[in-house]
Simulated scan of single mutants.
Amino acid sequence: MYFNFYFPKETDTKEYSDNRFAFFEFENFNQKHIHHYRVDFENIGETFKIINKKLYDNLSEEQEENLEELIEDWKNNNGFGDWEISLLTESSLDRNLDEKKFMLRDQSGERKFGFINHKTHEMRFEE
């Protein structure tokens, strides 16, 4: 059994009296939440045990493209011009929710992992 929780960007006050499931229509719903928190449970007798927890970001395509452009500019100005950029899914609960994880990889396979703040655009790298 699992439960999903969605954290909206802003409170939706619209009433959905014609179709109460209209709120969850994918194109509409996908733009409404900023984080998606999933908790998986295992039923053990009369109790439930949490077996997995994940927290996902819901950045728009435009936001992700903007972050990639900022990382691209940084890497070109700091000696990483031929390294590839990948935005990553960071599902850990113990993280800064304003940061998006990314990876730089060179042609030999060496990797550097970092985070970019999607509000301030500040970047930091893992040690």
Rank of each mutant, 00 (worst) to 15 (best):
F115T: 01
F29N: 00
E69K: 11
E126I: 09
N28Q: 10
F21W: 06
I85S: 01
S108W: 12
F26V: 02
L87A: 02
F23H: 08
L70H: 13
P8H: 13
I44T: 03
E90P: 03
K49A: 09
N117Q: 01
T11C: 14
N76S: 09
F41E: 05
E46K: 14
R20K: 06
N28F: 09
E110C: 00
L88I: 08
S92Y: 01
P8Q: 13
F125G: 01
L55N: 08
N78Q: 06
F48S: 03
S91M: 13
E127A: 15
D57M: 11
E90H: 14
I34Y: 05
S108V: 11
Q31M: 07
Y16K: 01
K101F: 05
F7L: 15
K112V: 11
K101Y: 04
N58R: 11
S108A: 06
F102V: 04
N30P: 01
D18Y: 14
K112N: 06
N52L: 08
F48Y: 09
S108T: 08
Q107F: 11
N58K: 12
N30E: 10
N52H: 14
I44Q: 15
D40E: 08
E10Y: 09
I51D: 00
V39N: 00
F24A: 03
F24Q: 05
N96A: 06
L55D: 12
F102N: 07
L104T: 03
D98M: 08
R124V: 08
N96E: 04
F115D: 03
Q31W: 07
D12K: 07
F113C: 00
E15C: 04
N19D: 15
G109M: 06
E68N: 07
Q31N: 11
A22K: 07
I51F: 05
K119W: 07
E69H: 12
E42R: 02
N43G: 01
K112Q: 14
T120D: 12
I34L: 14
H35E: 08
N96H: 15
L55Y: 13
E42K: 03
D73M: 06
H36K: 13
R38L: 15
E127W: 06
L87T: 08
L93H: 02
N117H: 04
N76C: 11
K32M: 09
L97D: 00
N58T: 10
Q63Y: 09
Y2R: 13
L59D: 04
G79V: 11
L67D: 04
I34V: 11
D82T: 10
E110G: 03
E99M: 14
Q63N: 02
F48T: 13
K9A: 13
K54R: 14
N76L: 04
R38P: 00
F7N: 00
E10V: 15
D98K: 15
D98H: 04
D106A: 00
G109V: 10
F24L: 14
K14A: 10
I71H: 05
R38C: 14
S108H: 09
G45W: 10
M123K: 07
E61I: 04
L55P: 07
Q107T: 08
K75S: 03
H121Y: 14
L59F: 05
D12Q: 05
N43A: 05
L93G: 07
I34N: 13
L67W: 02
S108L: 07
T120G: 14
Y56K: 09
Y6H: 15
